[in-house]
Design a binder for these strands. Structure first.
Lengths: 244, 244
DNA sequence: CGCACCTTTGAATGAGATCAAAGATGGTGG
DNA sequence: CCACCATCTTTGATCTCATTCAAAGGTGCG
C-alpha cells in the first residue's frame, strides 16, 4: 500500500530543498493508495466531495458538461499532479474527473490540508504558487481556444502534454497519448472530424508522426511556434517563507 | 491616503468573522493608494513585476496578446478583487492589466504575502480558496468560449459581471458597462461585428435593454439559462483553520 | 472472429469572420 | 458653448473555416 516515496515531494523538490519535516508532511498525504480503472469516474460534477488526490500513476481528465450536450475538457492530469483542489473552495465538485488509463491515486481529505496550512507555511506558499501556475495555464488554454484557429489549438494541446511529460522523462519524444480524437476535440473546442484533419495536416507537414495512439515529436520548435505556447512549469521561489 | 476600511477584509468578512488581528493584517495590504487613469496599464505581459494590487474603485481587465495580433481578455476585475496574484508564481507578468475606467488600487509587494502566510493561516487558506474559486470561474469561461455559440458566450459574460456587481449592490439592475464591443469580443472569442449582432438579438428578445453603454437586465433567469451560468461566489469554509 | 468503438475521407451546410461604409457618441480645444 | 475629430456602433454583403451528415476502413478486446 504505502510507499515511502512521495510524487508531490519530488515535484516540489524541484523548486526548493525540502526539510525532513516537510517531506514527511507531504508523504502523509500519499499514505493511502487507490487503484482506478480506465474509464472510471473519480469525481462527479455537482456531487458532494471533500476528497483530494495526488496522482501517482496514469492519466486523468477533468471536464464539465454543458447544457447542450457539449463537453469541455479543462485539464489532463499526470503523475505528480494534485487533483480536486477545488474541494477547498466548493462542497460540490465543479468538474468531473475520469481516468483515461488505469491509474493509481492517493486520496486525502481537506482537513489534512488544514493541518498543512497550520504547520507548514512554506509548503502552503508552494501550494498557492502551484495553483496560480495552473490558473495561468488555464488562461493560456483559454487564449488558445478563444483566439486561434483549429490547427494551433491542437498544437497547443500537444505542447502542453509534451512539456509536462518531459519533466519526468526528459529523453522520451514518442508518447502513447490515451486520448480519442473526440476527447482532443472536447479539449480544444473542435469536432472529432476536424481534429482528425488537423492532426493529419501536422503529420503531413512533418511536425509530428502518428502510429496508432503513439505520437512522436519531429519538430518541437515548429510545434511550439504554431501553438504560441509558453512553458509555465518554472515558478518563482524568492518570496517564499523560510523553511520551518 | 490610507483609509481604515479594507475592501478585501469586507469581502472575506462575508465568509468568516474576522478577528481584529486578521482585519489589521488585511488593512495593511491596503495602506497605500494609487490612482490609475482610464486606459493606463498597470502590469504588462512579459515585464518583471512583483507587485500585487487590491482594487478599491473602478474596473480593470486582464488580457494576453497572441502572436497573430489577437487578444484574449481573461477577466474583468472589480472593487474588492485581488490583482496580479500570478506574481507569486512568476517573476514576469503573464498578463497585461489595463484600467477600463479611472480606478484606485492598493499596491503591495509579494513579501507582504510571505508575512501573511507566516502569521495568518486562516487568511492564507481563504486566499487559496479564493484563488481556486477564480480558477473555477476561468474554467467556466473556457467551457463557454470552447463549447457554446456566440449568443450564449455574450450571455455568460453579462452574467459574470452582473453576479459580481450584485454583491456590493444587490438592488442595481442597470449598470454602466465600460467595455467596447471589441473588448466584449476579445473576452468571448468573437469579432466586434458579431458581438453587436448578438447583443441586438438579446435586446430584441427582451432579455436586456441597452442605452449607450448602460445595460439593464430585464430577464435575469432567461439570461442565466441561455448562458448555462453557475454562480461561484460562495465558497466552502468548514475546513478552514481556526482563527488565530 | 465478431462487435463496439475509433479513425478516416468526402460532400454539403452553416455560424461566425471579413470587408466596407454609413451613423452615433463623446471628449477636447477653441 | 459649440464644433470637430476620433472612436465606437450599426448594418449589409460576401466569404471561409469549421460543423454536420454520411459511410467506408481500422483496431482491439471479449
Amino acid at each position: 500500500m504505502s510507499s515511502n516515496e512521495s510524487n508531490l515531494a519530488d515535484r516540489l523538490g524541484h523548486y526548493v530543498v525540502l526539510t525532513d519535516a516537510e517531506r514527511a508532511a507531504l508523504g502523509a498525504l500519499e499514505s493511502e493508495e487507490r487503484q482506478v480503472r480506465r474509464g472510471a469516474t473519480l469525481l462527479e460534477e455537482g456531487k458532494a466531495s471533500r476528497e483530494l488526490f495526488i496522482v501517482r500513476k496514469g492519466w486523468l481528465q477533468s471536464s464539465v458538461l454543458l447544457g447542450n450536450g457539449g463537453r469541455q475538457i479543462m485539464r489532463i492530469s499526470l503523475p505528480g499532479d494534485v487533483l480536486g483542489l477545488s474541494a477547498l473552495a466548493f462542497d460540490e465538485a465543479p468538474e468531473t474527473v475520469k481516468a483515461l488509463t488505469d491509474a493509481t491515486v492517493c486520496p486525502f481529505d481537506r482537513e489534512q490540508v488544514t493541518g498543512l496550512i497550520n504547520s507548514h507555511p512554506r509548503l502552503t506558499a508552494l501550494l498557492l504558487a502551484l495553483t496560480l501556475a495552473e490558473r495561468t495555464v488555464l488562461a493560456d488554454r483559454l487564449a488558445s481556444v478563444g483566439r486561434t484557429p483549429a490547427r494551433a489549438r491542437i498544437a497547443w494541446l500537444l505542447c502542453d502534454i509534451f512539456a509536462r511529460l518531459r519533466i519526468a522523462n526528459p529523453d522520451h519524444d514518442a508518447v502513447h497519448v490515451p486520448l480519442t480524437q473526440e476527447e482532443i476535440g472536447d479539449a480544444t473546442g473542435l469536432t472529432a472530424v476536424h481534429v482528425n484533419r488537423m492532426m493529419r495536416g501536422l503529420a503531413d507537414d512533418g511536425i509530428i508522426e502518428r502510429r496508432g495512439s503513439v505520437v512522436r515529436l519531429l519538430a518541437e520548435d515548429r510545434l511550439f511556434d504554431e501553438a504560441n505556447f509558453t512553458n509555465r512549469l518554472d515558478i518563482a521561489t524568492s518570496w517564499l517563507p523560510r523553511a520551518g
